[in-house]
Simulated assay, not measured.
Amino acid sequence: MSEAPETSPATSRRTLLCGAAAVLAAGGAVAVSGCSSSANSSDQSGAAKGPVDLGPASAIPEGGGKVFREQKIVVTQPTAGQYKAFSAKCTHAGCIVDQVKNEQIQCPCHGSRFGIADGAVQDGPAPKPLPAYPVTVEGGNLKVTPS
């Protein structure tokens, strides 16, 4: 009586590469999904919902402004006592603006510049103004409501 030769499963190169690709794809999906999760209540743009207390209005220089990177909000004071708030997300490629200088909100990625009074594009490539948010001063603190 003849016995069948003992065989062991052989892994082909194709099977190995497909398996590795599946593992990498799953890991990438987990990594990407982890980027969008947030511990605080926020919308898909990352801006917090409801009024956000940004601290003392006195921290915003007249003729300038301040970027609140974590909240993705920029607040300016074009003239004494007049506060403006905008999304800090550039309308060109979605980068977060990094500073307010020379009466302009400045994006570091591609050089877009926005006016501190109205968020209007002063220098491209941004295609449209920064979205404006309602801002109030309550008890000396800035309260901004992202939309």
Rank of each mutant, 00 (worst) to 15 (best):
T7C: 08
S58Q: 05
V52S: 05
E103R: 13
P125F: 00
E138T: 07
L24D: 07
V67R: 15
G119F: 00
S42H: 05
K49C: 15
K89I: 13
F114V: 00
T15Y: 09
G50N: 03
P78I: 02
A29H: 04
G140W: 04
K72M: 09
Y83S: 02
A57W: 14
I60L: 06
G63C: 04
Q82V: 10
S8G: 10
G55P: 04
Y83W: 06
C109N: 02
S37K: 11
K66P: 07
T11G: 10
I96N: 11
G19C: 04
F68E: 12
E62Y: 10
A48K: 09
G94W: 08
G81N: 11
V97I: 05
S41R: 11
L16D: 13
A26H: 08
T7H: 09
K89E: 11
S36R: 07
D53G: 02
A22E: 02
S8K: 15
I105S: 03
S8L: 13
S8I: 13
T79W: 03
C18L: 15
T79S: 06
A20P: 11
G115M: 14
S87V: 04
G115L: 14
V30F: 12
V74C: 01
K101H: 15
P125W: 00
K66C: 08
I105P: 04
G55Y: 02
G64L: 02
A120P: 01
H110E: 08
G119W: 00
A59S: 04
F68G: 13
L24G: 05
P131W: 00
G111L: 01
G28C: 14
A80F: 07
